[in-house]
Structures are given as structure tokens and as C-alpha cells.
Simulated assay, not measured.
Amino acid sequence: MRTAKPIPAELRAWAEQRIGSAVDVRDVSHDRPASRVWALECSHGVRRYVKVSPSDTFFTRETRAYRHVVPALGQGRAPQLIDSRAEDLALLLTAVPGHPVPATNLSAAEQRAALLQAGTLLARLHQAGEIKGPDRIEAGTALGLAADGAEKHLARAGDRLTEPERQLVRDHADRLSRVGPVPVGFIHGDNQPRNWMWSRPIRQLALIDYERTRPAALVQDLVILAATEWLDHPDREHAFLQGYGRLLTDAERFALRCLIALDAVNCLAWGPDHNDPEVTARGRRSLDRLMRKDRP
């Protein structure tokens, strides 16, 4: 059973200076040591959140995203940043209506509406702001950096992969490093249903959690979906891409397959070490499917 993490007194005082007295504070962190999030119920019936980022990098990415990228999604489609406290890596955020999609029993019609809206919101994020200067350089090197990380993930995974599986990952990393030009922009970085909030009364989706938002190849935002939600469900992929507003280019399709292989070994390295059976299963499923097909 997970032990609740109390909010530090100085963070509660800082938040209450900005939002007023909180009548209740609940730990709503994910079941991971680095996750620290609290819901504050205010006396006037409004909920706010305090989030402590796991690292300086995540804090910088998320605060930048809320200030310069997230507004492109539209009113009520993402939390808003009320304030930040750099010395504690803390963010004070508004709430959005709804519940995470995996925790909501969606009807078929709601599921299609959620997928359409998820595609639309991601397209808005991907098109937010002009990518130039250092951001363009970072985005242009993203796939190469992902390919370069393969050996690190293989080392961490150890004997959880067979030698043929290790070679398959290396083959895909090599091909990824030589993929031609692909569209770039700001990506969400953790685009998956757990970060999609569905409000049933208004049939509206919102997107949360921007600590991994950064300039990169846009196709990198589709890896988790391709390895989970779209797997054996082409109708879900079709609905999402309909909302997204375009089909993937040939180069993106090829890059996506390579990225799925790298995601698989990362999952098999990270999942067992953090006792996360869902992530581990995603990695094993992806790798098994790739092994059954011709290698690149």
C-alpha cells in the first residue's frame, strides 16, 4: 500500500499566499518515488495543484511549456500556470475538468470523440510557435540522440533481451540515425491516455503533464500510442489522425517503427527495475512483434 506524501509546510504556505486558504490537501502523486503532486481544495470550492518536478530539466521544460506552448491548446484544454517556485522546482496549477481516460468507462462514441480531440490538441501543440535557433537545432538532432541512446538502454536491460533481440534493436537504431527529414516542433513527450482528461458532462478532452515538452521530431509523440492504443485497432489510429489533421509521411512511418524498437528496450530496462508490469509488458509485446517481422 502506497504511503501518502505530506506536502512540505513551506510549499503549502507559498501556494495559500496565492490561492487563499486550502481546506483540504491530498497527495495525488503517481505510485513512483519521484512523483510529488498535491491537490488543494480551496474554501471557495476551487481545486488547485502543487507539483514538484523531479529535476531541473523537467521544471524548466514544464514552466516554459505552460508559458509559451500550452496556451495554443485553448481555454479549458490544459491546466494554467498560476506561479512557480524555482528553488523548490514547484509549480502551482489550475485544474481541468474530467478524469484520466483509463479510469473512465468510455462508450464507443465517447472513445471516438476522445481520440479525435486528442489528435486535434496534439496538432495544436505541435504547431505552437515557430521553431528556430537553438530549438530547431535541438529538434533536428532528436532522432539521432534517440538512436545514440540504444546502447545505454541495452546495457540497462542486460539479459532481459536475447542476442537476436539486441541485434534487432541495434539495427533499428542504425536506421533511425539515417532517416531523412521529418516534421519538427514542440512535442508533449508523454502523449498517452493517462494524460488525457475526459469530462463526460461537456464531452471535452484536456491534456495534462508537460514536464517532457521540448523541441523534437513530431513523430516521437506517437510512439506510445502506436505501441499500445493503436495496436490491432486501426480504427483508433484513424480517429486520432483524423483529429490530427494529416497522415504521417513515409519517413515518419519508418522512424516510428524504429522508435518503437527503442521504446521496447527502454521499457524492458525501466519497467522491471521500477516494478512497473504495464511498462514491462509494453516493451516485451513490441519486441516480440518486431521479431516476428523482417528486420530493417
Score class of each variant (00 low, 15 high):
Ser43His: 09
Leu89Met: 08
Pro102Ala: 10
Ala139Phe: 06
His126Val: 03
Leu89Trp: 10
Glu62Trp: 01
Val46Ile: 14
Phe59Ala: 13
Gly20Ala: 06
Ala34Tyr: 14
Leu81Val: 06
Gln17His: 07
His30Thr: 07
Leu11Asp: 08
Asp27Val: 08
Ala72Gln: 13
Thr104Met: 01
Arg112Asp: 12
Arg85Ala: 15
Pro102Gly: 08
Glu62Ser: 01
Glu87Met: 04
Pro134Ala: 13
Ala108His: 01
Asp83Val: 07
Gln17Pro: 03
Arg77Phe: 05
Leu116Glu: 03
Val50His: 02
Ala90Asn: 11
Gly119Cys: 07
Ala86Asp: 06
Arg77Pro: 07
Val25Thr: 08
Arg18Gln: 09
Leu89Asp: 05
Ala65Tyr: 10
Ala34Phe: 15
Gly20Ser: 11
Ser29Lys: 09
Leu121Ser: 00
Arg85Gln: 15
His99Phe: 05
Ala109Pro: 06
Ile82His: 04
Thr104Asp: 05
Ser53His: 13
Asp27His: 07
Pro102Cys: 10
Gly140Arg: 00
Asp27Tyr: 13
Leu73Tyr: 04
Ala142Tyr: 04
Ala123Ser: 06
Leu145Glu: 15
Glu151His: 04
Asp24Val: 11
Leu91Val: 11
Ala118Gly: 10
Leu73Thr: 15
Ala34Ser: 11
Ser84Cys: 14
Arg77Glu: 15
Leu92Ser: 08
Ala22Leu: 10
Gln117Phe: 08
Ala78Gln: 04
Ala22Asp: 08
Ala34Cys: 13
Leu89Glu: 09
Ala109Tyr: 08
Ala147Asn: 09
Val25Ile: 11
Glu138Tyr: 04
Arg18Asp: 12
Gly20Met: 09
His153Cys: 15
Ala139Tyr: 14
Ser84Glu: 11
Ile131Trp: 04
Leu93Ala: 05
Leu145Asn: 14
Ala128Lys: 03
Thr60Asp: 10
Ser55His: 12
Arg64Asn: 13
Ala103Asn: 12
Glu151Asp: 15
Gly129Phe: 02
Arg36Phe: 03
Glu10Arg: 15
Gly98Val: 00
Pro100Asp: 05
Ala103Pro: 02
Asp83Trp: 01
Leu89His: 07
Gln117Asp: 09
Glu16Asn: 06
Ala39Lys: 14
Asp27Met: 05
Leu115Met: 12
Leu81Ile: 12
Ala147Arg: 03
Thr104Lys: 05
Val101Lys: 00
Gly76Pro: 09
Gly144Cys: 09
Pro6Leu: 10
Thr57Ser: 14
Ser107Glu: 13
Glu62Lys: 00
Arg26Lys: 06
Thr63Phe: 11
Val70Ile: 12
Ala72Arg: 14
Gly45Cys: 06
Gly119Leu: 02
Ile82Thr: 09
Thr141Val: 01
Asn105Gly: 10
Ile82Asn: 02
Gly149His: 11
Ser53Arg: 12
Ile19Met: 04
Ala123Leu: 06
Leu121Tyr: 00
Leu106Glu: 04
Arg12Cys: 09
Leu125Arg: 01
